[in-house]
Design a protein around this nucleic acid. Sequence first.
DNA 1: TACAATATGTCCACTATGAGACATATCGCA
DNA 2: TGCGATATGTCTCATAGTGGACATATTGTA
Lengths: 108, 108
Amino acid sequence: MAETYRKELVQRIIKNLLDIQLLRMVQAQPVWGYKIKKKVEANFQIKLRHGALYPMLNSLEQKGFLTSQMQTTGGRARKVYTITKSGEEYLQSYYAILKDQIEDVDLK
Amino acid sequence: MAETYRKELVQRIIKNLLDIQLLRMVQAQPVWGYKIKKKVEANFQIKLRHGALYPMLNSLEQKGFLTSQMQTTGGRARKVYTITKSGEEYLQSYYAILKDQIEDVDLK
DNA sequence: TACAATATGTCCACTATGAGACATATCGCA
DNA sequence: TGCGATATGTCTCATAGTGGACATATTGTA
């Protein structure tokens, strides 16, 4: 059945389009790296190395897709990320492509 | 504007999910490698190396997602591919994930 | 007080990927 | 008859990416 391939495909998409998944999560609500890691691992049943995650978040900030503010809650220092206008535009482009894929626009 | 990022994103998706794009094209109509190459390059304005394309098509056949028949039209030998039931199921899983992405199902 | 969890960061060695070359054959046209 | 287009295939080297370690600090719990 079709669901057999789902987990394998999700893992590929998360891996290859990790930056986009991070933008989606931050857009849903401002959040910090460690929480993203836990959420990805719970939602998609994949291991997300922090050695890959943190450099990617910093890179997204450098590109202007995310901004960050340090927050300290109970002595716990967190770098909370918020999506920027550019980041939202990037996501909109992504969603537009997905719609084209589903509707076979690009095959005509 | 959002369209600035489109080309860059399309290239990434085609590159990382090439097998799926090949399945989509064969599903639209049975077709051979060289024609796929020309079509991808025209539709997406990207270079598709035949050194990447042909091994991928053979691999999709080995996995049972495609079948092929040799056809000779005017002395021109073509390996025409047709999608299998498994191939269509794989695509269905892919489309289901894209819908989840668009609808933010996996962020809740 | 020692350890697991929270929290963020860098770095290096290995491996996997990819660009481009090497290879071959036919057809149509100039 | 030589060249560009059609058609499919393999292989190698350099680069890119990944896994896992190294690093540091705080909090809560056993």
